[in-house]
Design a binder for these strands. Sequence first.
DNA 1: GGGCTATGGTCTCAGACGTAGACCACCAAT
DNA 2: ATTGGTGGTCTACGTCTGAGACCATAGCCC
Lengths: 150, 150
Amino acid sequence: MTREPKGNPVVLDAPARAVLQVFRAKAGEARALDQSRCPVRDVLDRVGDKWSLLILIALSHAPHRFSALQRAVGDISKRMLTQSLRNLERDGLVSRQVFATKPPSVEYALTAMGESSLVPVVGLVGWASAHHDAIRDARLAFDAKEAAMA
Amino acid sequence: MTREPKGNPVVLDAPARAVLQVFRAKAGEARALDQSRCPVRDVLDRVGDKWSLLILIALSHAPHRFSALQRAVGDISKRMLTQSLRNLERDGLVSRQVFATKPPSVEYALTAMGESSLVPVVGLVGWASAHHDAIRDARLAFDAKEAAMA
DNA sequence: GGGCTATGGTCTCAGACGTAGACCACCAAT
DNA sequence: ATTGGTGGTCTACGTCTGAGACCATAGCCC
């Protein structure tokens, strides 16, 4: 026992499993070849970045200028906004265009690739919003159990 | 020009856009109500964590013991592994089971919710692996342009 | 003119956070 | 007795983040 095969149905469909297999293969191969230079992992690092997703989502609505973007995201510092935008621009997800107005303004917009990244992102957001109640409950239960321990 | 409406076709389908709308609504409402306590955002924080995704993916193959997990992920420190596992467990994505063997062993496995999280995760991984060539090229181009500036 | 706004950033500094590695207690095999 | 393997914790160090000052420029108001 303690090892009973769980009865819950497989959640992943065939294409999802296929993608996972591809990922495992790439991860393994990359690790074998060149430790820590797995391409999928570094892309994930960027997408997984706290601010990048938020910026992408803000830009999904419309192009934004620097300070409009800062206001849209809410609690991001200029420093991190600059840095995240640089990374996003470097990765080709966001375009930067300077307008030679008196105080020069800069407009950031999603590129085609940036827009395409929204597809998996909304998947994630959808999952998150579908499960955040369950997660909150799990956290409460966990914290209660932990408090009981102490 | 510099402002021509881009001709690229809309990438998001209707359900995706709907999810995005929901996210924007939640984000806005949460920010209005209680700055920085947006539920979607904190779930995203966890999923977006560098190690959580890797752990989830490792566990998707089979349950792992602590040190097996560390070997599977590769370059994670015990400290971060412990911490990430605690968070994942707290959120109800991963279960922890202790076996009273002579050196007690601990087995971590995905819960049903953890498995369900793989669906959006593979979406992300799929996107990443589909685009990492383009991203690598974009980075090269960006770095070259930057070097030319200097 | 002096101060205020707003533009897009950069710079600095303190503090939070991640990492590597030692260490612990236990047991089996050598 | 040493070595290795179990799951962690603890500490010391270094990196990264966030808040805010600062820059140059051009209105605007008084």
